[in-house]
Design a protein around this nucleic acid. Sequence first.
DNA 1: TTGTAGGCGTTATCAC
DNA 2: GTGATAACGCCTACAA
Lengths: 337, 337
Amino acid sequence: MRDAKVTLHDVAKQAGCSLATASRVMNDNQTVGGEVRERVVKAAIALGYVPNGSARALRSTQTRLVGAVIPTVDHAIYASMINALQGRLGERKISLILSTSMYDPDLELQQVRQLIERGVEAVVLVGAQHKAQTLDLLDQHRVPYVQTYTARASGTGVAVGFDNEGAGRAAARFLLELGHRRLAMIAGITQDNDRAKDRVTGFLAELAAQGLDPAAMPLREAPYSVVAGAAAMRDILAQGGRPTAVFCASDTLAAGAIKHCTAAGIDVPGAISVLGFDNLEIAELTTPELTTFEVPARDMGRLAADYITASPTQRLHMRGTELPIRLAVRGSTGAAP
Amino acid sequence: MRDAKVTLHDVAKQAGCSLATASRVMNDNQTVGGEVRERVVKAAIALGYVPNGSARALRSTQTRLVGAVIPTVDHAIYASMINALQGRLGERKISLILSTSMYDPDLELQQVRQLIERGVEAVVLVGAQHKAQTLDLLDQHRVPYVQTYTARASGTGVAVGFDNEGAGRAAARFLLELGHRRLAMIAGITQDNDRAKDRVTGFLAELAAQGLDPAAMPLREAPYSVVAGAAAMRDILAQGGRPTAVFCASDTLAAGAIKHCTAAGIDVPGAISVLGFDNLEIAELTTPELTTFEVPARDMGRLAADYITASPTQRLHMRGTELPIRLAVRGSTGAAP
DNA sequence: TTGTAGGCGTTATCAC
DNA sequence: GTGATAACGCCTACAA
């Protein structure tokens, strides 16, 4: 087996040229003779040369590394974004360092610091709510960052996402227009989560605007999972004054809500309409299928990558990309009974 | 704002000590005086010093970087593994570079090469089937690799996973014991995918062992998605000689199969039993709920991380971790009609 | 306990 | 067009 540590020096020696020339060949620098270039390429292949990224980065201050800090990969909505982001970056030979914060801002700060140590050239975050220290650190090291799943950027960041508050209002409007008056909401955990918070705010604001009392509305927070959604639904029903429509801040929560209703013999949407959020694959698996907002996860990943790979001047024309979210109407919602 | 490029040199100057001493402090080297140590720490914080990972890596040949190449993040089963892997590695201050191959071995090779350039200290792959060149490259650079979702390692790698062929056989046995004789299978795309292939092999082998004709069994391959599962189910039914039980190589396929049956007015499990694979969250969302094999995705991620962070000597005691997979029996399977 | 100095593999700036 | 040579920021013998 060929030796493990073949350096550019070895390649140059084998090709009978200088280190500098070999380097030029590896970097597609045009100022090198065709004949020499060929010898270098051949030598590199023969020796199994692989450039040393650390050395290259150290010398050129170009790491071709991008970092992402997301709450978890275990939610399809984030996984989708990451998949698109990585795919797009990979096309441009940029590697993605992925880390998860588990919705913990302190952990996020730590991860961001680590990413900066690694020399990432940009960072992708989720949401606009972060520790001031986190954004300061990024600024201090001139590392641009894009905030996804939100339309309003904080700090010097750029947002690639959608309007969560607007979505909350749209949800309320949709249900109100179906004639519902006794509404409820199963939200995500709003602590340290501006997206979850904004959806609640928007939903309540619209109720108030239409003359209903937001304070009277049953509201539960639950982690994004089917079982938590079912439990929250149970709680809301146990509370009395049964709602005729429930807005769930994620499809997993909605799936749990429907599941509980079905188990409890409550007809969906006959007795209760259930509205979801995300439009995951599971939205078409529930019975009835889920009416839900389609979140452009893939687009966000793709656009974040585009922003990152754009030149600084190009970036100026890209400030704040707000994506539309459309409602996918299926069977889980209907007119108020 | 403080300057972006603060080097250890600056810290040392500010603390009034030598570069070496400052370096010792940053690396928790004990041989440094308490008073000086404090000055260095204070200076580092004051200046907002962040070590340069590239320089550190170049000098110490320790990158604390691990790479993973998976088919896609868009399948919950891989996302789960990655989530656990990253979490565990993160605890040990190791960063994860994630890339996706889209089931393409050539792309995988390219990604692995890129990871080696980055100086990753280990690589996590999926499955045991890879280009010889890929594994050679890893060996050549002394980069250990672990193969997940499989129990048999190839090359010099280590497997952290389960026996796909055994699972296929277990699936057949389970259905046969329920009295089914006309079986069918919806497999994943087997090209370049040993896990998918092994499940088919095992399933067919067991049929043959029990005196049935494997060649006569309806078999469809489909990408892992609900719609593809539904389409495959349609095809199988259209083929005539309707089976009484269908083994699907993933829960998404199974969900699609059930969905199609329901739409076609075929009772599950009354007329047809459907058996899944993965035990994703969606397994409890279908109607009826899915009987399926539980794949230890989280465990694989965790164990892969443990293997990677183990010392070379410890690793010798860890060769080949085969995980058991258990069957979660729910409502989608029943006795043959 | 602390300082000095050499070098990790590469790229960039000079000369030639 | 090509070749020396000096950094890049850090770690680590070796000295003191």
